[in-house]
Simulated assay, not measured.
Amino acid sequence: MKQLPLLFFFILLLVQILSCTQKNNLADPLQAGWKGKKVCTILEENNKIRTLKCVFPPGIGHEKHFHASHFGYTLSGGKFRITDAKGTREVDVPTGYNYYKEKIEWHKAINIGDSTAVFLIVEPK
C-alpha cells in the first residue's frame, strides 16, 4: 500500500512534464530554419549567454518558432512579412535597429525585400 502514493506522485509528475512540453513544442531560433536549412549559427555560447547570427537572403524566412528573453540587433536591415498571434504585417527593419523582448510566444517571418538581412540575437541564460 505504501507504493500506491509514490506511484500516484510519479504519474502526476509525468503528466506535468508532458503538459509542459506540449505547451511549447516549437523550435527555438537556432533549431528553426527555412525549408530544412539553418538560418542561424552560434557565434558564442557559455554559461551566461548564447549569441546567434541569423542570415536571411531575399525569399528566405524563419519557420514558426519561439524566443525566450533576448536582445536583438540588426547588422543589415531588410523588409519582412511577419506572422504572429496578432496577425500578419509587413515591416521594414532598418540597419542598426535594436530591441529587447522578455519572450515571443511564436512567430514566423520571411524576407520579402531585395537585400540580405542579418541579425544578432543575444539570449541570457
Rank of each mutant, 00 (worst) to 15 (best):
L6G: 01
L120T: 00
T83E: 12
Q16V: 07
G36A: 08
Q31T: 09
D92L: 13
L43D: 14
A109F: 08
Y100T: 06
S115R: 15
V122W: 11
K125V: 02
G78E: 01
E90W: 07
E63F: 07
G72N: 03
K125Q: 14
T41K: 14
P29C: 10
L26D: 09
L26V: 11
V93T: 14
K86M: 11
Q16C: 15
F9S: 14
P58H: 12
L7A: 13
K38V: 05
T88G: 05
G33E: 05
K101D: 09
G87V: 06
S115G: 01
I112C: 03
L30Y: 06
K64H: 00
A85W: 09
D114F: 05
P94W: 10
F80C: 10
D84Q: 05
A85E: 11
P29E: 00
N46V: 06
L13G: 08
G96R: 09
T95D: 04
Q22A: 12
K101T: 07
R50P: 06
D28R: 01
F8Q: 12
F10R: 05
E63R: 10
C40V: 04
I42V: 12
V55R: 09
N47H: 02
L13D: 13
P29K: 05
L52N: 04
I17V: 13
N47Q: 08
Q16K: 15
P94N: 09
V93L: 14
A32N: 00
G72T: 00
A68Q: 11
Y97T: 04
P124T: 08
P124A: 08
A117K: 06
T116L: 10
H65M: 02
V39P: 08
G59W: 09
V39T: 15
R89N: 00
D84L: 05
E123N: 09
Q22H: 09
D28C: 04
W34M: 12
G113R: 04
I49A: 09
K53M: 03
I82P: 01
G113H: 03
V122G: 04
I82L: 04
H67N: 02
T21N: 15
N46C: 14
G61I: 08
H70K: 12
L14G: 02
W106C: 02
T51Q: 09
F56C: 01
G113W: 05
E102P: 14
T88M: 01
K48R: 14
L12I: 00
R89P: 00
D114H: 11
E45G: 08
D28W: 06
E102D: 10
Q3F: 13
N98K: 08
Y73T: 11
F80Q: 07
V122A: 00
I104Q: 05
K35Y: 05
F66Q: 06
R89E: 03
N25T: 02
G87D: 08
V93N: 04
K38E: 01
Y100V: 12
F80K: 06
N46H: 13
N24M: 07
K125D: 03
C54K: 10
E123D: 01
K53I: 13
G77H: 13
I42R: 13
K86D: 07
N24P: 07
K125S: 10
Y99L: 06
L12F: 13
D84E: 01
K64F: 00
V93S: 11
D28S: 12
Q3D: 07
I42L: 00
H70V: 12
E90Q: 10
T95W: 10
V91T: 12
D28K: 03
C20S: 09
T74R: 01
F8C: 00
